[in-house]
Design a protein around this nucleic acid. Structure first.
Length: 425
RNA sequence: GGAGAGGUGGCUGAGUGGUCGAAAGCACCGCACUCGAAAUGCGGCGUGCCGGCAACGGUACCGUGGGUUCGAAUCCCACCCUCUCCGCCA
């Protein structure tokens, strides 16, 4: 949610930011509506002031037993009452229209975000590890996975396309990856573990920015709840409508949760394999902090996610997303992309964004700066640390052997009860 | 799911339809007293929006949204949430 005052103060800068996102200028239309709202609002307030004044006088007159004056004043206020409801309705409609308009505008990119129309404009910022050279043709996990317990057919019979069942060693490896990640994030990386609600209300999803524009990407229950598409929703909204003491910041949260995405519009993309599912698990990282802390928190979050890939020995690169590839709420995003040998490409496995006060405004989350009076909006950041399903895919493909077995990465062996290899049946 | 009770400022907690944005206490801030501190005394102490350079003025907010009224924290309706008891249940 944008601050209308910033748009009033510097409409050109606002439109320039939109232009970097590839959007038409909107400030003129917004400010026009804003001017009308202020005019109506002022008239309304003047009317209310007159009404309040007269009502007080009526009270005073009645207190003195002067019913003649009271009745005269009542008649006067009654006349006002025909106009006030109209003004009220008009004011409300305009305020709502402005809010709806602002709520649908994405965050503006940070100054150091490169301009670009789509993912081809992203810039590599860092890479780690060398893709392993295979002495056989690296296979696709969708091909050798089923013999190791990755069951697409049974899941399709139960739930349809884009679902999978993990069985035996495969289920164990998936769990091992998730537990390892969660232990790292809660331990060395200092995030507080949270087990949050997976079903959430409109307000929460609005707060992080998935609503109102992206309802079709979400699942909704018959009770009106939404299934979270990412724990970012639950974790960030943990502080919604709160005023936090500055000393409490930064707050760092992590959660291992299922995520549910309808994948509307993704028909035909990544239909094979475990890459794009309606349901997947992810270890999410969220930071709630002051504006001054945000850059460091972003760096810490990036490092926390990268550390997982490095511990697992998975080659990756870090991309600075360009303006055209960033999500709705983000001001600046790094994606981590892991090497998938079967496809010979790097695939997104983590996305780490700083959102400025964009989400904080939508959630009304503020803090009290020490030594200042009043409150300011917090900054929020979120990132995957990491997506469990895609990490499973990366481990399978990077650690596959010619005989269809998969070597368990060293750090996961303790989580596998000592099992060092997945063997085909 | 059924029955009941309740949602008021950072917290506790008053509030008769009419100077109630709201008593009081606690907490907090400033000042005084003190060598210093405690105790005590005095003063201050909510948020949003609009106007104003500012001082300040106006307006809204007592769970949320409607309604009644000249006027609603107070009356009416709906919803949300919390607590207690019963039922069901991992």
């Amino acid at each position: 949610m944008h601050d209308i005052r910033l748009i009033r103060d510097n409409p050109a800068a606002f439109d320039a930011g939109l232009a970097r996102r590839g959007l038409e200028p909107l400030s003129a239309a917004i400010l026009d509506e804003d001017a009308r709202w202020r005019s109506v609002s002022t008239s309304l307030q003047e009317g209310l002031a007159r009404r309040n004044e007269a009502s007080k006088a009526i009270g005073a007159a009645m207190g003195k037993g002067d019913s003649a004056t009271a009745e005269a004043l009542k008649a006067e206020v009654a006349a006002l009452k025909t106009r006030l409801p109209e003004l009220e309705a008009e004011e409300k409609a305009l305020a709502e229209a402005i809010r709806d308009r602002l709520a649908a505008i994405p965050n503006l990119p940070a100054p150091d975000v490169p301009e670009g129309a789509d993912e081809s404009g992203n810039v590599e910022a860092h890479h780690w590890g060398e893709p392993r050279s295979f002495n056989f043709a690296a296979q696709d996990h969708a091909d050798f996975g089923p013999a190791l317990g990755l069951d697409f057919e049974a899941a399709a019979a139960i739930s349809g396309a884009r679902f999978a069942a993990l069985r035996g060693q495969m289920a164990r490896l998936h769990r091992a990856i998730a537990q390892f990640m969660l232990d790292q994030q809660t331990g060395t990386n200092d995030y507080e573990e949270v087990n949050p609600p997976l079903l959430v209300r409109d307000d929460a999803v609005f707060g992080t920015g998935q609503l109102p524009k992206f309802a079709e990407d979400l699942f909704r229950t018959t009770t009106g709840h939404w299934l979270i598409p990412t724990a970012e929703v639950s974790l960030t909204n943990l502080v919604r409508e709160q005023i936090l003491p500055e000393s409490a910041l930064p707050l760092r949260f992590t959660a291992l949760t299922p995520c549910f995405r309808s994948e509307a519009g993704a028909a035909g993309r990544d239909t094979r394999g475990f890459i794009r599912q309606h349901q997947f698990e992810k270890v999410e990282l969220v930071s709630i902090c002051t504006p001054d802390q945000a850059a460091d928190e972003h760096a810490h979050m990036v490092a926390s996610a990268q550390a997982i890939l490095e511990a697992l020995g998975l080659p990756y690169r870090r991309m600075l997303l360009c303006t055209g590839d960033m999500g709705f709420s983000a001001a600046k995003t790094f994606d981590l992309e892991v090497w998938l040998p079967s496809q010979g490409v790097y695939r997104e496995i983590s996305s780490i964004s700083t959102c400025g006060d964009f989400q904080a405004r939508r959630m009304n989350t503020r803090y009290r700066p020490e030594g200042e009076k009043g409150t300011r909006f917090v900054h929020t950041l979120n990132g995957s640390g990491l997506a469990v399903g895609r990490t499973l895919v990366a481990v399978l493909e990077n650690y596959q052997n010619a005989d269809g077995s998969v070597t368990v990465p060293d750090v996961l062996v303790p989580y596998m009860g000592g099992l060092t290899e997945l063997t085909p049946r």
